Simulated assay, not measured.
Amino acid sequence: MTLTLSEFVGAAGGGALGAALGALGGFALMGVIVVVATLLASVDPDTTLVGGLAFGPVFGPHVMFASGAAAAAYATYIRRHDSARDIAQPLITYNNMSIVGVGALFGVLGQFLARLAGSVPAVHTSDGKEIAMMDSLAVSVVLTALIAAALWARKPAAIRQQWLPWQHNAAAVLTIGAVAGAVAGSVYLAWPEESRPMAGLFLYGASALTLLALVFGKAVPVTHHITLPAALTAGVAAAHTDEATLILLAAVGSGLLASVLAEVWARLVLERCRMHLDPPAVAIAIMATLLALIQLGIG
């Protein structure tokens, strides 16, 4: 599989920008673009801004965020960055263009892997509805992080470091999962019915935007891996019932599961790793496939 010239150039530029801004800074920028694009798409369904721009080869999380995380691992490997787990620091501060170059390379790799994952054939339900079996962007984020870890962070961490200390214990994980799920379900129900598929993406962007606070050292709940699957679950439920209570319960249940999945990955894998292996991307990837299987099961 080959990338088009525009994809190649865009992904290289987006990856370099992600390295320069830092993974979290790039992700927050993407959040702004996603929010604006989804709102415009709700007004004009024919716009290509969501897929082509917000989640495209420049600003998509598989390019900008993933490249920033990979570049942080490389910068730590060459002893310019203190910790590959630190994805908040803008890496341009080190004035080392090899770091930016690594971002560009991983941007292209991220776009290629997303295209590769997206080429997996969709499955059709009994009524002919086409169901994608995976979230290709989330899968790409996971794979690029594993490749970067294999290159520059193979040794396990000497000291275990929690992912989000304020979102670590069981009460916090379950509470944030339930609250974010409830918010996602409520937003889905409030969204104009003809454009409800945009609700989950809007929430993903809004959740990403809040993470700008982490760049400045302020604690905020991380919820994009909860609000997106929860809104998608609300959509699955809404296809089979008009009861708002059941739709909300489905969203809350999905939010709880996604929150737990991310924390399980964080405790089993991330805490033992020297670089950032994104728990939200893992949770979104698992939830996307699980929701696809549920849709196939209920027809």
Rank of each mutant, 00 (worst) to 15 (best):
T2W: 06
L3R: 11
L5Q: 13
L5W: 11
L5N: 10
V9M: 02
V9S: 06
G13I: 04
G13S: 01
L17A: 08
A20C: 00
A20S: 01
L24Q: 11
G25M: 10
G25F: 08
A28V: 09
M30E: 10
V32M: 15
T38M: 03
S42E: 04
D44A: 13
D44S: 11
D44C: 09
V50H: 12
L53G: 07
F55V: 11
V58F: 10
H62V: 14
H62P: 11
A69S: 15
A70N: 10
A71Y: 05
A72L: 06
Y74V: 05
I78H: 12
H81R: 04
H81Y: 01
S83Q: 08
I87M: 08
A88E: 08
A88R: 14
Y94P: 03
M97G: 13
S98N: 06
S98M: 03
I99Y: 11
V102L: 07
V108Q: 13
Q111A: 15
F112N: 08
L113D: 08
G118K: 08
A122V: 10
A122Y: 14
V123I: 14
S126K: 09
S126Q: 14
K129P: 01
K129V: 12
A132I: 11
M134P: 00
A138C: 00
V139S: 12
S140G: 06
V142H: 11
L146C: 15
A149Q: 12
A150N: 03
Q162F: 09
Q162E: 14
Q167T: 11
Q167L: 09
N169K: 12
V179G: 04
V183R: 07
V183S: 02
V183E: 05
S186P: 06
V187E: 01
Y188S: 00
L189G: 13
A190F: 03
W191M: 12
P192M: 05
P192I: 04
E193R: 15
R196I: 09
P197G: 05
P197L: 11
M198C: 08
F202M: 06
A206T: 02
S207W: 06
V215N: 13
V215L: 05
K218Q: 15
V220I: 14
P221N: 00
A231C: 03
A231S: 05
V236K: 04
A237H: 05
A237N: 10
T241S: 07
T241R: 02
D242A: 14
E243Q: 11
I247D: 09
I247A: 07
L256W: 04
A258C: 05
S259T: 01
V260R: 02
V260A: 01
W265R: 03
R267E: 05
D278L: 13
P279G: 06
P279V: 10
P280F: 09
P280C: 06
I284P: 02
A285F: 03
A285V: 02
I286P: 03
M287L: 06
L290G: 10
L290S: 07
L291H: 05
L293H: 04
Q295K: 13
